[in-house]
Design a protein around this nucleic acid. Structure first.
Length: 576
RNA sequence: GGCCCCGUAGCUCAGCAGGAUAGAGCGACCGCCUCCUAAGCGGUAGGCCACAGGUUCGAAUCCUGUCGGGGCCGCCA
């Protein structure tokens, strides 16, 4: 067990002895101010009621209990009853042994106990390649999946393929035009078509296979064939785009199969059985957002019962399903597959759907299957000092592929995770390529490579390779400088950071932590210029060198462990 | 008009189940290479956490309202 979890567990045990059973509100964390110790807890304040004594008195008891613990150096009671702990330096440096032994698994846990999570993300319409906004959702989703896997969840990555609606009809007609074009005809692609060049190759392929067989034929003759072909091509595009970023979906779920298999009817039946479907009229939107409102009798889902703002129509006036109906069926299907938990990642433009989807899941699972819906906000792209215009239909948006080709998958992924998912994100092509401390990706990677180069150099000096085993056996008493201990303490926080990120579904926390670790490591390294005793390689002192190498190695372990959650490859050396 | 997200330093953003004196990077200014990679480090300046109430021993954090920015809003998916 890592040291902080161990200390926390011990604290909770003692609390229980005083009759404090509920540890929910107890914090045990690094305080904001150094003056408040290395770890501080509000245990006495929060637990006083349960222990039936005053916070101050409980604090005093806890203090005297823990003063007997030889890991503890100092405890102070402050304010309304905070306990501020300072531990022996050995507590922190000895933890490095654990870190090195764990290696890549440092920070991993069994928090999820194998619970099955369905993580749906990207789910862009199969009408073209992915753009930079999708890239954010893709990276966010995949990293969240990695984070959850790292903490003991069994994650299925799924893409909901909207292959049933009018948009794929438009796609099909656009492709038909490209097919004619490939056969030498002049075509006129209107605003009602997808105009991107990426459809040209699809047209060419079709022309090769079918020659002029479908020229001058009615739509009926070619439509289904072209449709299927086009969708397959688009899925192929999308898979390749995702693969550029190292992302592989476990499953593409086809919307079209839902109506074919009768699952829509089943799902609606289920809602009907619960009295959640009725025929009615929606109130007109207030403020006249919609021109020419005409009241309609429609089949509605009582989503307001589950916190939605209005009931939602599931059937159009011609009795065909609205888009919402397959969505209901899809989520019913997710639930029937027996997942313990659902997570959806939506782009900002779908934020209006959160409440109704949540309502569906609550209704169909009897509120038994939790669903978390994360929204990724828009990406603003800038390049050559200016903002890029993004216009969808004209095909002017920056494509995912462009970004990856320009800056590489690792940088793309890292940058996409530098902001909280629901905050807007700037993607600056120029800054991101910069090889300097101004570029966080570089900065973190450089931290890792410095460790590697130190290990290499030490191996030369010591005239033998240095293995993790050697490092784990070193005498860490050599690590006695305040800054070395501080770094060890920082590294010890990693499991808590992971735990928190996993619980809150917030991979960006990993990025911020890595930045901090790298920063403290760089600082220590540079201090070595002035203070030779802080350098890693200590001439004529193999034991001291090994201990310092262990600290460096543990830093690299934390960094590479974190990078693996981000899906970024740690570099052994910087090039260029 | 309604709903969702956002509003923290000049700029871009963190802020950990509400915790004790508000954080980082950039930009600005001042410094640090006879020294394992200066691709780096240190320091200074800069904030009424949009505003007003409320809950609490305690609020940037939770609740209500106001203002400001973005997104979405019935027979498009």
């Amino acid at each position: 067990m890592d040291i902080i979890s161990e200390l926390r567990r011990d604290l909770m045990e003692v609390l229980t002895r005083y009759g404090v059973e509920d540890h929910q509100a107890v914090t045990f964390e690094r305080p904001k101010f150094e003056a408040h110790g290395e770890l501080a807890t509000n245990a006495a304040i929060v637990g006083a009621k349960q222990a039936k004594i005053s916070p101050r008195a409980l604090a005093e008891r806890l203090k005297s209990d823990f003063l007997d613990d030889d890991r503890v150096q100092k405890i102070e009671i402050a304010g309304p009853g905070f306990l501020n702990f300072v531990f022996q330096p050995s507590v922190w440096v000895e933890n490095l042994r654990y870190v090195i032994q764990k290696g890549q698994d440092f920070g991993a846990s069994n928090r999820g106990r194998g619970q099955r999570v369905l993580l749906e993300f990207v789910s862009a319409n199969p009408t073209g390649p992915l753009h930079i906004g999708h890239a954010r959702g893709a990276v966010f989703g995949d990293s969240l999946a990695r984070l959850l896997e790292f903490t003991g969840f069994d994650v299925t990555r799924e893409y909901y393929l909207n292959d049933g609606g009018a948009q794929v009809d438009t796609l099909t007609r656009s492709v038909y035009l490209r097919y004619l074009e490939a056969l030498g005809q002049k075509i006129n692609i209107s605003k009602d078509h997808y105009r991107g060049d990426y459809l040209k190759s699809v047209g060419v392929s079709l022309a090769k296979i079918y020659q002029d067989q479908f020229v001058d034929q009615t739509e009926e003759e070619w439509f289904d064939l072209f449709r299927e072909f086009s969708i397959n091509e688009m899925v192929e595009f999308i898979q390749q785009d995702l693969q550029c970023l190292g992302i592989k979906m476990d499953h593409f779920f086809s919307e079209a199969t839902l109506s074919e298999s009768g699952k829509i009817d089943q799902a609606i039946d289920r809602l009907e059985q619960r009295g959640l479907i009725y025929r009615g009229e929606l109130p007109p939107p207030k403020g006249g957002a919609i021109d020419g409102w005409v009241p309609r009798q429609q089949k509605l889902f009582r989503s307001t019962r589950f916190g939605d703002d209005v009931d939602r129509p599931i059937q159009k006036s011609d009795d065909s399903w609205t888009y919402f109906a397959p969505d209901i069926a899809y989520h019913f299907d997710k639930i029937s597959r027996g997942f313990d938990q659902l997570i959806n990642v939506f782009g900002a433009d779908h934020s209006g759907y959160i409440k109704r989807i949540r309502a569906v899941v609550m209704a169909l699972s009897d509120d038994k299957v939790p669903i978390d819906i994360k929204v990724t906000q828009t990406v603003r792209v800038s390049k050559d000092g200016g903002a890029q215009k993004m216009s969808k239909r004209a095909g002017e948006f920056v494509q995912l592929r462009e970004a990856v080709e320009a800056v590489g998958p690792d940088v793309t992924r890292f940058v996409m995770l530098m902001r909280k998912n629901d905050a807007q994100l700037d993607f600056d092509f120029d800054q991101v390529r910069e090889q300097s401390a101004d570029n966080p990706v570089f900065y973190v990677q450089y931290g890792h490579t410095r460790v590697c180069s130190a290990l290499k150099l030490a191996a030369e000096k010591l005239e033998s390779p240095v293995t993790d085993d050697d490092l784990a056996k070193a005498d860490y008493a050599h690590l006695n400088h305040e800054r070395q201990i501080a770094l060890a303490r920082r590294i010890a926080e990693w499991p808590r950071v992971v735990e928190q990120a996993s619980r809150l579904h917030e991979p960006h926390r990993i990025v911020f932590f890595l930045y901090t670790v790298a920063s403290e490591f760089h600082a220590l390294w540079t201090l070595g210029h002035r203070q030779p005793e802080l350098r890693i390689v200590q001439k004529g002192d193999p034991q001291g060198t090994l201990a310092r190498l262990a600290l460096a190695r543990a830093t690299a372990v934390a960094i590479s462990s974190g990078l693996s959650i981000l899906g970024v490859t740690p570099l052994k050396e910087m090039r260029g």
